[in-house]
Computed example of a mutant assay.
Amino acid sequence: MRMQDMEPVKEITNKLDGWLETLINNLPNIAVALVVLIISYFISRLVFRFTLKLTDKRIKQKSISKLVARFTAVIVVLVGLFLALGALNLGKALTGLLTGAGISGLVVGLALQGTLSNTISGIVLAFRKNLRLGDWIETNGYAGEVVDINLNYFVLREADNNTVVIPNKLIIENPFKNYTLTKKMRVSLECGVGYESDLEKVEQVTKDTIAKHYNQKELGKKVEFYYTEFGASSINYLCRFWIEGESGLDRLKAKSNAIINIKKVYNQEGFNIPFPIRTLQVDSPINIQEAERK
Rank of each mutant, 00 (worst) to 15 (best):
N25K: 15
R186S: 10
L116Y: 13
F127H: 06
E196L: 11
I243S: 11
E138L: 02
Q4K: 12
K129F: 09
V146F: 08
F50E: 06
P167I: 06
E224K: 11
D5E: 15
G144P: 01
F230E: 05
L97R: 00
Y179R: 13
K263H: 14
K62C: 00
Q281N: 09
N130E: 10
T13Y: 14
M6I: 08
A254V: 07
D208C: 01
I123Y: 02
L46M: 11
I260M: 09
L156F: 01
I123H: 03
F275E: 05
K263Q: 12
S233G: 01
K264L: 12
N162R: 15
F154K: 06
K184D: 05
K201L: 09
K62E: 12
A33T: 01
D148N: 10
Y195K: 07
S121E: 04
A101H: 03
G192D: 11
L189K: 03
L78M: 14
E292C: 01
L98C: 04
K62H: 02
R278I: 13
M185H: 02
N261R: 14
R186L: 03
N178G: 08
L81R: 00
G91S: 06
T55D: 04
Y142G: 02
G96D: 00
L90A: 05
I210S: 02
R157L: 03
V193D: 02
V74K: 03
C191T: 04
A101T: 13
N168D: 08
L90F: 13
W19H: 07
P274W: 10
R45D: 10
Y227L: 06
T95P: 00
K201G: 03
I277M: 06
V165K: 09
N178T: 08
Y41V: 01
E246R: 15
E200P: 00
V202I: 07
K294P: 00
S234Y: 06
I166E: 11
A159E: 15
V36C: 09
G86T: 13
T209L: 06
N178V: 07
K15M: 10
Q61R: 06
T209E: 10
S117R: 15
Q113M: 14
N150C: 01
F50P: 01
R293V: 11
A84L: 07
E196W: 13
N257K: 12
I64C: 10
A73E: 10
E196G: 02
I123A: 05
E21W: 15
E21L: 14
K57W: 04
I235Y: 14
F71K: 06
T119R: 08
A291I: 07
G194R: 10
A31S: 14
R2P: 10
G91E: 05
I39L: 13
S117I: 05
A31E: 09
T95H: 03
G134V: 07
E11Y: 04
N168R: 09
S44K: 04
G91Y: 13
S284D: 13
T119F: 12
T51A: 15
K15W: 12
K66F: 05
T139C: 04
T95D: 06
L170Q: 14
D5W: 15
S234T: 11
V32N: 03
R45F: 09
I260E: 10
K263P: 01
E21F: 15
G114R: 11
A159Y: 12
E203M: 13
